[in-house]
Design a binder for these strands. Sequence first.
DNA 1: CATGAATGAGCCTTCATTCAT
DNA 2: AATGAATGAAGGCTCATTCAT
Lengths: 193, 193, 193, 193
Amino acid sequence: MTTPPLRKDAVRNWERIVAVARDLVDQGTALQLNDVARRAGLGVATVYRNFATPEALLETVAAPCLEGLAAQGERALADPDPWRALTGFLTHVLEAQLHDAALPPVAAAPEDTLPRTTALKASLTSVGTTLLGRARDAGVVRPGLAAADLVPLMCGIAHAVNVHGGTPGHRTETGHRYLATLLEGVRPPTPHA
Amino acid sequence: MTTPPLRKDAVRNWERIVAVARDLVDQGTALQLNDVARRAGLGVATVYRNFATPEALLETVAAPCLEGLAAQGERALADPDPWRALTGFLTHVLEAQLHDAALPPVAAAPEDTLPRTTALKASLTSVGTTLLGRARDAGVVRPGLAAADLVPLMCGIAHAVNVHGGTPGHRTETGHRYLATLLEGVRPPTPHA
Amino acid sequence: MTTPPLRKDAVRNWERIVAVARDLVDQGTALQLNDVARRAGLGVATVYRNFATPEALLETVAAPCLEGLAAQGERALADPDPWRALTGFLTHVLEAQLHDAALPPVAAAPEDTLPRTTALKASLTSVGTTLLGRARDAGVVRPGLAAADLVPLMCGIAHAVNVHGGTPGHRTETGHRYLATLLEGVRPPTPHA
Amino acid sequence: MTTPPLRKDAVRNWERIVAVARDLVDQGTALQLNDVARRAGLGVATVYRNFATPEALLETVAAPCLEGLAAQGERALADPDPWRALTGFLTHVLEAQLHDAALPPVAAAPEDTLPRTTALKASLTSVGTTLLGRARDAGVVRPGLAAADLVPLMCGIAHAVNVHGGTPGHRTETGHRYLATLLEGVRPPTPHA
DNA sequence: CATGAATGAGCCTTCATTCAT
DNA sequence: AATGAATGAAGGCTCATTCAT
């Protein structure tokens, strides 16, 4: 199961598990179902029934953030300026990766465990594709950058920031700088306003 | 110990261990000292004496490649064209990361196990710093890109390529494309020949 | 965990472990948790969950004997004759050390693993202190012997007996003789009946 | 081999090994031949050739102290006062056990590794037997204390002191107190001067 | 004689997963 | 549905001892 069950106490358990997992992820600890169960004060099997694998739990932890990005995507689609729409959206995606430790592994995984995750990722990809298409049509982005590159590149920048290291504040600044550089290289070579 | 000892059979064992480790790395298998020992047909302790930790072994496996890069760095330093020198060097670094699975973890690690590794990484960083400085002085690179960004960015691109996936051939092509894009964003904004 | 859990089969396992450990102790074999698991026909982790360390298991094995001594202590406290109470109690303590191989290491250890052990040892120490105080007040024991000496001296005699060696029967006899000698040196120097 | 060999460098190695072992014993570290070799800057096999087992090395480390006691024994044999001779000798034996960590295990061991050790222990036992016999003949010691009890009792007291714990100074004081108590119990019951 | 590399049994410990209660 | 005891494979590491050089 990946969505909160209906029974009241079951819901409470589900939420407890996710909350514990969120804490662990924030601490940078790898998720171990046994460990989660102990910290949540629940039986192991309870955790296993709700989340068959650590990946399923991780994806569940990441889901709200992905939903937030999807919402940002909707807003971006409404932006009439194609360049601003695209860059704004990518900025949000990058910031999410930098702020939420649950995201990078989920974003980089070639396979998802939960259908929900697949749907969310597809939705984001779709938004990105649309935004990139519009930008390309508007001539503000070079050809040669494919929609399939967006996710890898955001993952790559997030990884670069992690390798660079530094305090959370520095990380955000570094990420913005890297993204700006990349976007500069993405604009057409002609002088632009 | 990290360099081959003098005794003939000991040298053979050392080489066997490194060879086995190289194979495992190429297969994408995580290095486990016990496993390496078994495959090499050696006692566990033999492996442990030569390589105290899996990281030490991994760094040893990565060393030849790092040395190759250092050599490339020397050549790049001799190149009179600052832009070509810098981009050529970074291209070599990126290709190395893409071709040799031992490199990404070693490059991304904040701490090294072997002094040798530290020295090699320092040497490469030094070359990068020099090349970047020359390019900046020649006005072919924007300010805003620091020497400390080179390694993270190369790691980031390599990671992006891995997330993108594809066959080895595709991977190289993708890497070149990503690097080209980044480099485009790194050049000064004025129209250049 | 140090007390039998509630589930029926779990209790059986707990008891099996302790029984195996008891046998090993009697044979003079050092306790190794893996070994215990194998002999008990249980998984290693089962033993580890019940007894985190060999010391914990050893203390558990020793506990019944310590409890028996505590009971003897209660009886001794009820004895109106201070000398007989003290010597009788010490005799029991010594005999326990000689008969149960689990006791000497637990008695001599400066630190306990289980709170239970600490409590039992404290209880015995308390009884000893009381009995010694009474004997001293009654003038049947010289000053100069402190309560803190009782445990070390009993351990010392037990050790002396072990060094002396011999069959179990001899050991008991030797122990009694050594204790008697010591107690003789503990009485006041005036001629006594 | 257990006595320094004749060749000059071999002697130096032998001495180095014993010196290292002495340090380790003083630190309370268990002797491991491999470890000793490393610290002595010698090959393992060199240590093994000189000392077949850790016990052999330990006995060699303990030997000088045993020889010192033997010398004390000679002096005690010359003492015309049987009580003073006996108690003085036992005091030396006890102090040696308390001061030199190499002694307790050697003294308590039922079997020796080196003939030399056996000879030294026999010599000490012989002295003790003689001194005890004289004291008994002089009527200053009860019957019931056998010569075979002397070593065990000294080991027992040393062990009691260890269990008691405390600083080196305290240990000596405690040891003397315990020995005094025991000796008191060893004198005949009639009032003595 | 000296060296120190090699051995490999053996111990400790963890963890994902199952299953009896 | 919930619990948590049980499992046992798997991995990490040490150490006494041997033996090739």
